[in-house]
Nucleic acid binder design. Structure first.
Lengths: 176, 176
DNA sequence: CCATACTAGTTGGATGTCAAAGTATCTGCA
DNA sequence: TGCAGATACTTTGACATCCAACTAGTATGG
């Protein structure tokens, strides 16, 4: 995250001035947006990691456990988990390896499809998850750094970016 | 990035429904915002990496080269580079190692401060940077997935989040 | 002058990302 | 019925992140 202390100026505003100074005006808005998103992601991830550290979980592991807890059976094929979490199959393998090593999930062969392995939430994982979610909700998700109307406005704008990248059909499930 | 093809629904809208269904309404807006930022960062980074791949550069390396090119001397102390780029000192060491190995920068002892090492942009780095910036501007920064007014709106909202995290004094350099 | 506190940068390790390539299994069609 | 193409998951390697601990050098105050 940030080096020691705050900078005396906004580094993204400064970069934007440089972009314009070099004649790249057309790209300045986009550059500022992209680097802002990257920086805010970094800030959020640092806060998430801090909130989860007492539980021995990273955010990637937490997300997988949460996804499993929301299913009816507490299990999913790895491929489906990867699509829902929008991560690469190799990342799913990596995270499942680590959760399995910690006794929070287990791998189960699919009853009828030899290609498929299910990842199944174990009681230890479910138990850990309750406290972890409470901590995340209290420390991060109820304090996102902007007021609720602005948070919703941001989500809506970011949603257009996600849809334009092909994440989902934008007309599929409209926001209320 | 995304697994194969788009999902038939918005995974973040779905996660938000789960959050509300579990009684975590107060945290739902924040959860949606945080996961949206994380996802959009991932999308942007994938596009950036694709644009930079022909130049053999990652975004972290590109950013450091760009920062150096904006200085008067083409050189900076590693500590200062880390503060400007808002990354951990160990990350700066790592990226400088790799750029040095590729002959794009070199480490130079500080003339008067024995603790300090300067990282200096070499001609090969400067040459590579011109094409890399053109590619990034053309492929990513002029096509951020939203129109310019929305991009500016997003930057302003994200700027408040960055300020509230202590990145810089929000009154220091106001946007026009 | 010296002890202490601070700064600068490195090293080792953990983490998770994705690309590329691989093996194993399933499906659909000729 | 056989096979091409697809799917599922793993392995390997590259990449960059940060934490914790370390060494070396500088600044400051008594």
């Amino acid at each position: 995250m940030s080096g020691p202390g705050a900078l005396p100026f906004d580094p993204i505003a400064e970069a934007r001035r440089q972009w314009e100074g070099h004649g790249w005006e057309d790209a300045a808005d986009g550059m500022a947006l992209v680097t802002s998103v990257i920086r805010v992601q970094q800030l959020y991830l640092a806060r998430i990691d801090a909130a989860l550290r007492p539980f021995g979980l990273s955010f990637a592991r937490y997300e997988l456990l949460t996804l499993l807890s929301f299913t009816r059976t507490g299990a999913l094929p790895l491929s489906k988990a990867g699509r829902r979490l929008q991560v690469h199959p190799a990342s799913v393998t990596n995270v499942v390896d680590r959760l399995e090593a910690d006794g929070l999930v287990r791998r189960v062969p699919h009853p009828t499809d030899g290609r498929t392995t299910l990842v199944e939430l174990l009681p230890a994982g479910r138990d850990l998850l309750a406290g972890a979610t409470a901590a995340l909700n209290a420390q991060v998700f109820t304090q996102p750094g902007v007021a609720a109307p602005d948070a919703r406005r941001l989500v809506e704008l970011l949603r257009h970016i996600r849809a334009s990248a092909g994440d989902f059909d934008i007309d599929a499930i409209p926001l209320p």
